[in-house]
Nucleic acid binder design. Structure first.
Length: 872
RNA sequence: GCGGGCGUGGCGGAACGGUAGACGCACGGGACUUAAAAUCCCGGGAGGGUUUCCUCAUGCAGGUUCGACUCCUGCCGCCCGCACCA
């Protein structure tokens, strides 16, 4: 090893050293009782897939910067970590590799814990838990029963999305383009009795409270609003013409947001699964056949896009609410959804494109009822395009001439007055797209639902003394389906009430349940109750939550629901779980494809060759698009390899540099090399600053502007702090580079010569601050430099430096001078110089006086400390 | 279809309405070295002018303003979310 090498910073030696020290000292163990203000920062906890990926590195690096920064700012910071450990991959592994899900999961956790610890995160590991720990799901079962007692849990028969590959039920949210979100299999419709959380009870509050989430991305708030899908309309009850409907049904309820278009109605339509359709089908094989066809169309995107609007006349007729003589036909239509509204609509083809498409096929009348602004009433017709906008009512009897809005009110008011069968003919109704959350999963590796089914007593909660309902270990995965179903010891129990033989519920909970309250559990992870309400209330809400945008709807909505349900059941008393939310971008990488179109690993490609070729077979390689890292595209970079080669600090620094955190960042060799160079550069600066200056002062040594260096130092403190507070890590990194550059230049000036006392003070301050500023991002390097600079104690315990506001700007200010908004020169003035002096200087500037040519300026604008603009 | 976001050098990107291109990457030149690596220094939006200068430049076209990457209007392009929601 050459002497130069000895001066290199070696992360492989230093990183484990500091990690051990932090752990021994319990540096990041946080106490609930602490007089300092609390700050709770949380990154979405990982699924223990086996190895961490670069997305984790980015996510946890960001969270750690916030955590360490806030700690240094004097807050009592809670920064925990756990494992979202239930779920299907463990069972898939069990089936494929004959390894028990429990062993697979805990082995993975152990491996990933080691990896995360190697990143040097400031995590309070004493609070760690996995959702598959009995202690955790025990408390979750208690929550379930509390929700059940509070009426927030129901069991209902429902048509569910059935994943034929995973052999399980999926929530609507887990069906993407008609396919299972995990297996990708085409989802089938199936009738099953399922457990539901009544998230719709909170629909109104979940929607209105979005307005209070000021520190959430607007995008996420919008996605949540859309998902809740509030609409305000009218429930209209239509009288069925006597004798036209089977079983003496007398009424058909429809939901509409456009009651103003009631006189444009030309038909009624019910969903294929609507009870009236079922009744009609029983009498009419043609209708039955049509409904059967609808069942098979499926819900895939392609099917929906190509599906024509189709229907069949049931023969049933209804009377128009405003005209008993006016009868309309009732169709079964394939585009009406049972799940939304009442599953029945009135069709107004002139004001709804779908209805228009429908009537074109069945030759029903089209009556224009809304006249767009500026259109001519005499010539206005609806051809192929419905007019859905606002306008003036026409062809609508007593509504004619009203605006659509006024017509809405008129219809609502008039129909409310009419009573039929003791009920008003129409009522205002708020409707949500949101449906109750089906949590039943026919799987083994999840939290058992603590219910016993008794022939006499129905659904009986497992008594508290009998909790937890443990997952049995002796299960087999040689057949598809739920192993719990065929585990006699698990299933056969006695009814807690009558002690007769009964059957234990074998459904387990959706893993989204596990992740809906883990952030609460972190506040009291070992409590014998789900929470310690006082402790939970003190820590919550999470001040800053950081994670992927893919969880912007489901996870966040469920967590918001849980917070409300837990408040209702007395487990905590906060209104929202996450005060601040940040969605980070993905880590991307170039892709490579061989001549045969196969994806290739970067290591297989000789990129130096022109064109790039395959290292083994010499074939030409195509450089593909930049995509998010995925195993299937072979464009992954293993964090372990990076940490081994460069150290965690380098990886963290790169993940925080350059790209704004909400955008995707591209992984490149050059980028990681650049980060590595900066690590070494900081180390050299620290070493040079720590080295005692040589005794004899060289006469020819250059000097530097010490006050300027000190001002630059203060500016860096202010700017970096501000950037971190607003989570703009790339900007913080840039400001750190600036300080490092200025400092390095100053150092070079006094190299091998003795610095003047004021110079030495400026250098020492700058070096100390630089180390403090990099601390949150590169904590190991920070500690090493901290010690090299002779500081006592740990950087992790050092308070954040304070910027002196009076030091933030230079004494002499360079003011740009514009003529008509175009820069023509600059003047140098003292800070706070009188306006007259600035004006005189600006006007005497050569280019300015030349353009003015003796004339006085029309206007002279001086923005203090910013700019001068001369208007000619 | 509905909703949202984004368009700035070769690249990632900076810029309270106030000097556009901070900072990094890549590139070119130089120093050190027998050499390489490492490191350090210098350079750079485009076009023109013999240096200290001018013109044009933040997707396009307008507007507001003393002054616009930033605000407004209309286009074009890309990305994302939702989608037969009555």
């Amino acid at each position: 090893m050459s002497p130069k090498d000895a001066e290199r910073y070696d992360p492989r030696a230093m990183e484990p050293h500091w990690q051990k020290l932090w752990e021994e000292r319990g540096s990041f163990t946080v106490a609930d009782t602490d007089s300092r203000e609390k700050y709770y920062v949380l990154e979405m906890f990982p699924y223990p897939s086996g190895r961490i990926h670069m997305g984790h590195v980015r996510n946890y690096a960001m969270g750690d910067v916030v955590a360490r920064f806030m700690r240094a700012k004097g807050y009592n910071v809670l920064h925990p970590m756990g494992w979202d450990a239930f779920g299907m991959p463990a069972e898939n592994a069990a089936m494929q590799n004959k390894v028990h899900p429990k062993k697979w999961t805990y082995d993975n956790i152990a491996a990933m814990r080691t990896q995360l610890k190697a990143m040097g995160l400031s995590i309070d590991w004493s609070r760690e838990f996995a959702t598959c720990d009995v202690e955790y799901y025990h408390q979750q079962q208690k929550l379930f029963l509390d929700f059940w007692a509070a009426g927030l849990v129901t069991r209902k028969k429902s048509r569910v999305n059935w994943d034929p590959v995973d052999q399980t039920v999926l929530a609507n949210e887990q069906v993407i383009d008609g396919r299972g979100w995990r297996s990708g299999a085409l989802v089938e419709q199936k009738e099953l009795t399922q457990w539901f959380f009544k998230i719709t009870d909170f629909a109104d509050d979940l929607l209105s409270a979005i307005d209070t989430l000021a520190d959430w991305p607007e995008k996420v708030r919008l996605m949540q609003r859309n998902w809740l899908g509030k609409s305000e309309g009218l429930l209209v009850r239509w009288q069925i013409v006597e004798g036209t409907a089977p079983e003496d049904v007398t009424e058909l309820e429809t939901y509409t947001t456009r009651p103003d278009t009631l006189f444009g109605a030309s038909f009624m339509a019910v969903a294929p699964t609507h009870p009236l359709a079922t009744l009609a089908a029983a009498k009419n094989p043609g209708i039955a056949a049509f409904i059967e066809r609808c069942r098979h169309i499926g819900t895939s995107l392609a099917a929906l896009e190509t599906a024509e609007k189709q229907g069949i006349d049931t023969g049933i007729r209804v009377r128009h609410p405003f005209d008993p003589e006016w009868e309309l036909p009732v169709y079964v239509a394939n585009y009406v959804l049972m799940e939304y509204g009442t599953g029945a609509i009135f069709g107004c083809p002139s004001a709804d494109q779908r209805d228009l498409d429908f009537v074109h096929r069945y030759a029903l009348p089209v009556v224009a009822v809304v006249l767009p602004e500026g259109a001519d009433a005499a010539s206005f017709v609806i051809a192929d395009e419905a007019f859905v906008g606002p306008g003036t009512m026409i062809n609508s009897r007593f509504l004619d001439g009203l605006t659509t809005k006024a017509a809405f009110e008129e219809v609502a008011n008039e129909l409310a007055k009419v009573e039929v069968n003791g009920r008003p003919q129409a009522e205002r109704r708020v409707n949500y797209r949101l449906r109750d959350w089906g949590v039943s999963r026919q799987r083994y590796w999840g939290c058992p639902i603590p219910i016993i089914h008794c022939k006499t007593h129905g659904e009986v909660p497992v008594p508290d003394a009998d909790l937890p309902v443990r997952l049995p270990d002796d299960v087999t995965f040689d057949r598809p389906g739920n192993p719990l179903d065929r585990h006699e010891g698990f299933v056969n129990v006695k009814c807690p009430i009558c002690h007769q033989p009964a059957r234990r519920e074998t459904d387990t909970m959706d893993t989204f349940v596990d992740s809906s309250w883990y952030f609460v559990r972190f506040t009291a992870p070992r409590a014998k109750t789900p929470t310690e309400p006082k402790t939970a209330n003190a820590w919550l809400p999470v001040n800053q939550y950081i994670g992927g945008v893919e969880h912007a709807i489901l996870h966040l909505l469920y967590a918001r629901f849980f917070t409300r349900a837990m408040r209702l059941t007395g487990h905590l008393n906060v209104s929202e779980p996450f005060k601040g939310m940040f969605t980070q971008g993905m880590v991307t990488h170039e892709t490579y494809k061989g001549a045969d179109g196969r994806w290739l690993f970067a290591e297989e490609v000789d990129l130096a060759a022109i064109p790039p070729t395959h290292r083994q077979n010499g074939e030409k390689v195509t450089i593909g698009s930049i995509e998010s890292m995925s195993k299937s595209k072979k464009n992954v970079v293993d964090p372990d390899a990076i940490v081994a080669a460069y150290g965690a600090d380098t990886a963290r620094w790169f993940m925080l540099s350059d790209s704004p955190p909400e955008r995707d960042v591209q992984w490149t060799e050059a980028g990681i090399d650049g980060a590595w160079r900066f690590v070494q550069r900081v180390w050299r600066i620290a070493v040079d600053c720590a080295r005692p200056a040589t005794a004899d002062r060289r006469a020819d040594r250059s000097s530097f502007d010490a006050p300027a260096l000190t001002r630059a130092t203060h500016r860096a403190v202010a700017r970096v702090g501000q950037a971190i507070e607003t989570l703009r890590f790339n900007v913080a990194v840039a400001h750190i580079y600036e300080l490092a550059n200025v400092l390095a230049k100053a150092l070079a000036a006094v190299e091998s010569g003795e610095a003047m006392p004021e110079e030495r003070a400026a250098l020492a301050l700058a070096a100390r601050v630089l180390v403090q500023l990099i601390g949150p991002m590169m904590p190991h390097l920070g500690e090493t430099c901290w010690r090299a600079l002779g500081e006592k104690g740990l950087l992790a315990d050092a308070p954040w430096p304070l910027a002196d506001p009076s030091m933030l700007s230079d004494e002499m200010i360079v003011l740009p001078v514009q003529v008509n908004g175009k820069r023509r020169g600059e003047i140098s003035v003292a800070q706070g110089a009188p306006q007259a002096e600035i004006e005189a200087l600006a006007l005497s500037l050569e280019p300015v006086s030349r353009i003015l040519a003796g004339r006085p300026p029309r206007k002279l604008i001086v923005v203090p400390d910013r700019i001068v603009n001369v208007v000619v």
